[in-house]
Simulated scan of single mutants.
Amino acid sequence: MVAAAVAALGFAAGCAGPPERPDSAPPFGPGCSAVPRSGMGSFAEMSGDPVVTAASHLPMLTEWVHAVHEADMVATFDRLDHLTVFAPDNAAFARLPKDQLHQIYQDKDQVSKILTYQIVGHRVAPAELPDGSFTTLAKGTLTTRRSGSGYQVGDAKVVCGNIRTGNAQLYITDRVLTPPP
């Protein structure tokens, strides 16, 4: 049920959202050093792949990719256009208590809600991050702000941001963002 609603909302948001703006700012953040300089998983290679496919080539996002598979949302996220994905890295998932993570994965609807809460229906450029407020595909609101030399989304730090994929702007975070109860 959530996946169908997200597909409809996301497709409409992707098509009806603001036009895509070119953004020549390079990827940024301390976690970007873990991205290969060339070949599979490099910034250049990811720019041609849809977001889940691109993320699947990054060792730091294996748990996020696993969550997308658990929610049966790979095709949904890979076919939508003009998204911004705030994807938690593996360390973010590791911070969750194992029993909580297990419980989340047992409830496909809950996984879907968490994932769609981390996705905005248009591309967010770094210039919009210092004082941003964005509606997510889960109809929640994420706020972003400057924090020292980097950015935060909610209580999560962006560890590598402004990664361009074929259909999304990807920001890797250090926390799993969850919708308010």
Rank of each mutant, 00 (worst) to 15 (best):
P130M: 07
P19M: 02
S33F: 09
G154D: 09
G140C: 07
S33H: 15
P126H: 02
T136V: 04
R123V: 07
R146Q: 10
H57G: 02
E63L: 14
D78Y: 08
S149T: 14
T84A: 06
S42H: 03
D109I: 13
Q118W: 05
V2S: 14
A12P: 09
L101G: 06
D155K: 15
V158W: 05
P130L: 04
Q118E: 10
H66A: 15
L58Q: 04
E128T: 07
H122R: 10
S42W: 04
Q106N: 08
K113D: 13
T53D: 11
L61N: 01
S133D: 12
S56F: 02
F11N: 15
P19F: 09
V158M: 07
A67K: 04
P97W: 08
Q110D: 13
T165E: 00
V159M: 09
Q169W: 07
D49K: 14
A4C: 08
A16I: 10
F134I: 05
S112D: 11
S149P: 11
N162V: 08
L170G: 00
S24T: 11
L80M: 12
G132P: 04
V124H: 02
Y151A: 04
P88H: 04
V120R: 06
E45G: 07
K108V: 12
P36R: 03
V120D: 03
N90D: 10
G161Y: 04
G48Q: 05
C160S: 03
P18T: 15
I119H: 06
R21G: 08
A87M: 01
R95T: 11
R79M: 14
R123K: 12
H82M: 10
L80P: 07
M60A: 08
V51D: 01
T53F: 09
A55W: 03
V52C: 09
T62P: 00
L80D: 02
V153F: 05
S24Q: 11
D49Y: 14
P181Q: 15
A94L: 11
Q169P: 00
A4M: 08
L61Q: 00
G148N: 06
I104D: 09
L9W: 14
F43H: 08
K157Q: 15
A55Y: 00
H82E: 14
D49I: 08
A127Q: 10
P126S: 07
D174P: 01
R164E: 13
T135G: 12
P88R: 02
